[in-house]
Amino acid sequence: RKEMTAACTPRRRIINLTSVLSLQEEINEQGHEVLREMLHNHSFVGCVNPQWALAQHQTKLYLLNTTKLSEELFYQILIYDFANFGVLRLSEPAPLFDLAMLALDSPESGWTEEDGPKEGLAEYIVEFLKKKAEMLADYFSLEIDEEGNLIGLPLLIDNYVPPLEGLPIFILRLATEVNWDEEKECFESLSKECAMFYSIRKQYISEESTLSGQQSEVPGSIPNSWKWTVEHIVYKALRSHILPPKHFTEDGNILQLANLPDLYKVFERC
């Protein structure tokens, strides 16, 4: 597991931080080997919608929660590849102030007048994250320049770009939802926020969305749709870069829909 690298990086740093090793061990302890084997050997059937997909393993048909699986995938990559990410360069710098204002204007932020003026909160978020810029760049390849612009994001899987519609809320939550006081809790909560931002979430995906850094293989055609990215990038990574937690067998994120021999018997009677 320590050699797990989802995106190509030129050289690998050895990380011996106790906090990170502890988080890696927790993933191992909570892992479910049968689910790992199923995901490793599954045959992708198709997307139901951005949140759900169908896959077959041996004779069984499964309904998989793409949102939760991708979130767990990105969390584990962030923990196992800690401080070893490439950088996704933004085509132009994104001012943190503008991103924070967009987030505060969104109902998702939960902002009320009692929280104070949005401009003041946005300025605080910019200054707060600028103070964390060195650590964010060093460990997470999340790059913020001296003017308070976001200029780079971590490359977690080759050819995958997170849904940038979720970027404003991500920046807001970096400042408000991460435990910045304790090292282990900081790395864990920061990785979880980043994983949620990178995950496939239906509120940020339309039929026209593209999450891939590449064009489709047909010359002159439109960019790959999110469905292509889910199948050929995300579920491909799920084959080798995730140890599913045991609770996925109990919380409805992986559901067995049918045993195909039983279905064949039904059709034979028709």
Rank of each mutant, 00 (worst) to 15 (best):
R1I: 09
K2M: 13
E3I: 12
T5V: 11
T5L: 12
A6H: 13
A7C: 10
C8N: 07
T9L: 05
P10F: 12
R11A: 12
L17C: 07
S19A: 06
L21V: 04
Q24W: 14
Q24H: 13
E25T: 10
E26G: 07
I27N: 14
E29R: 04
E29V: 13
Q30E: 12
Q30R: 05
Q30D: 10
E33Q: 12
E33W: 15
L35R: 13
R36P: 15
E37D: 09
N41K: 06
N41G: 06
H42C: 09
H42V: 12
S43H: 05
V45K: 02
V45M: 02
V45G: 09
C47A: 06
N49L: 12
Q51Y: 10
W52N: 06
A53Y: 11
A53G: 12
L54D: 00
Q56Y: 03
Q56C: 12
H57Q: 12
Q58I: 12
T59W: 15
T59Q: 04
Y62N: 06
Y62C: 15
L63A: 09
N65C: 12
N65D: 06
N65I: 00
T66Q: 01
T67L: 15
L69K: 00
L69W: 13
E71C: 05
E71A: 10
E71V: 07
E72K: 15
E72P: 00
Q76N: 13
Q76V: 02
I77F: 14
A83M: 02
A83L: 02
L88F: 04
L88R: 08
L90W: 02
E92G: 08
A94Y: 08
L96I: 08
F97A: 03
D98R: 03
L99I: 13
A100M: 03
A100E: 00
L102I: 05
A103M: 01
L104I: 02
D105L: 03
S106T: 04
P107H: 09
E108Q: 04
S109H: 01
S109A: 12
S109K: 01
S109G: 01
S109D: 13
G110E: 01
T112W: 15
E113Y: 14
E114H: 10
D115V: 15
P117H: 14
K118M: 15
E119C: 07
G120D: 02
A122E: 00
E123V: 12
E123K: 01
V126Q: 10
V126W: 11
V126E: 13
V126F: 15
E127H: 08
L129S: 01
L129A: 01
K132C: 02
E134V: 04
M135E: 03
M135S: 04
M135C: 03
L136R: 01
D138H: 03
Y139Q: 03
F140Q: 02
F140V: 07
S141L: 12
L142S: 01
E143M: 11
E143W: 12
D145T: 03
E147I: 07
G148Y: 08
L150T: 01
G152Q: 07
L153Q: 00
L153E: 00
P154W: 00
L156F: 10
L156P: 02
D158L: 14
Y160P: 00
V161G: 05
V161M: 04
P163C: 07
E165A: 03
L167G: 00
L167S: 00
L167Q: 00
I169E: 15
I171E: 00
L172H: 01
R173A: 15
L174D: 00
L174H: 00
E177Y: 15
V178D: 00
D181R: 03
D181V: 05
K184T: 04
E185I: 03
E185W: 11
E185G: 05
C186F: 04
C186K: 03
C186E: 03
F187D: 01
F187Y: 02
E188G: 03
L190I: 02
L190C: 03
K192G: 11
E193H: 02
C194N: 02
C194M: 12
M196F: 11
M196I: 07
M196H: 05
F197W: 03
F197R: 00
Y198W: 11
Y198H: 09
Y198T: 01
I200E: 03
I200N: 10
I200F: 03
Q203M: 10
Q203N: 05
Q203I: 09
I205L: 09
S206H: 06
T210E: 05
T210G: 07
T210H: 07
S212M: 13
S212C: 08
Q214C: 07
S216L: 08
E217Q: 10
V218H: 08
V218I: 13
G220T: 11
S221N: 08
I222M: 07
P223C: 10
P223H: 09
P223T: 06
N224Q: 04
S225P: 07
S225I: 09
S225T: 10
W226I: 05
K227Y: 05
K227G: 06
W228R: 11
W228I: 10
W228A: 09
T229F: 10
V230L: 09
H232S: 11
H232Y: 12
H232R: 12
V234F: 14
V234W: 01
Y235P: 00
Y235L: 13
Y235K: 10
Y235E: 05
Y235W: 15
Y235F: 08
K236P: 10
K236E: 13
K236R: 11
L238C: 05
S240C: 14
I242N: 12
L243F: 10
L243C: 12
P244Y: 15
K246C: 14
E250A: 08
D251K: 05
G252Q: 06
G252F: 04
N253T: 08
N259E: 06
N259Q: 05
L260S: 04
L260N: 07
P261W: 15
D262K: 12
Y264R: 11
K265Q: 06
K265E: 08
K265A: 03
F267P: 05
F267A: 02
